[in-house]
Write a protein that binds this DNA or RNA. Structure first.
Lengths: 152, 152
DNA sequence: AAGGTTTCTGACTTTCCCTGACCTTATTAT
DNA sequence: ATAATAAGGTCAGGGAAAGTCAGAAACCTT
């Protein structure tokens, strides 16, 4: 039952999210509150607020920098993206197109979005020899679906 | 939500543009309003009002000098796709993302479509070494945009 | 106790913002 | 014409963030 620093920071962010739906902090400031190194914040974000768990983070460096965290609007797409990522051999064209069609039929993608994704996952569009082609196809498709999980 | 000086000036110019379609200012005067160095205005123009983002700027020095900013003509998806295909070296990430953002701002892409395209043209999404990465990025992006131009 | 996993830090890197000193160009006064 | 003045342009560099990553430290598991 030991509550680690990472757990405490996780709870803090979750509590803020519950209240506001979105949290924007300065990394150095949050680290100061918890008396830890700034990179600890990155650790918490990397291990607990991942896309697979349905979170999205963005940040900006330099003067006026910040870190923002929010919940994914479409966690289903996050899950599909994570599953694709977990395929070491990537995905062939036919199953990829079928997957896209299912997402469209399920209302997760518009017709335009589906058409676009099918076009750019075609063999000729990627234009690499196997097996690299299937790997790149899976990575690109996963990234695209993950991005959509945000965009409501 | 720290709003930097550069952000504030950007908004100011955008607001003026929205009203008038074109803005003409004196650099030193705008700098005075914001209490900053004149060269800060150049920084804002150079980082935010670039041709890649769809803006055109012209200026004149000397007495009665000015800086003028306006929006560039709207691009067209099929033309962009063709231009991309004609690039033998492909396209790097930064210009690709700027291109996508510009299409979105011009109403040619929805926010979701743009987010997807930016995500899947990221370095890590493609995951190949250069120069292959830039080539694949261009091919995929061209295929996607072309599909959309058909799709209406 | 050994071995593995998770947590945490510090040094270094990258990105972004902003300024000041100096340069170029156009207009106006002499 | 020439000099003075009134603009804008350029660039190196400093400072303010956040990111990265190897490795130490702490914590489990067996």
């Amino acid at each position: 039952m030991s509550l680690t620093l990472a757990d405490a920071i996780e709870r803090h962010i979750l509590a803020q999210l519950a209240v506001a739906g979105e949290i924007a902090v300065q990394r150095v400031e949050l680290a100061r509150q918890y008396g830890c190194a700034p990179s600890q914040i990155n650790y918490v974000l990397a291990t607990r607020f991942t896309p697979e768990r349905g979170f999205l983070t963005e940040s900006r460096r330099g003067g006026g920098g910040y870190i923002r965290v929010r919940r994914a609007a479409q966690p289903e797409l996050s899950r599909i993206a994570a599953a694709l990522r977990a395929q070491p051999d990537g995905i062939a064209q036919a199953p990829a197109h079928a997957l896209i069609a299912r997402c469209r039929d399920a209302g997760l993608l518009t017709g335009r979005e589906a058409a676009m994704l099918q076009a750019l996952t075609r063999r000729e569009a990627i234009g690499l020899p196997l097996p690299a082609r299937d790997v790149v196809r899976a990575r690109c498709l996963a990234s695209a679906l993950l991005a959509l999980s945000d965009e409501g």
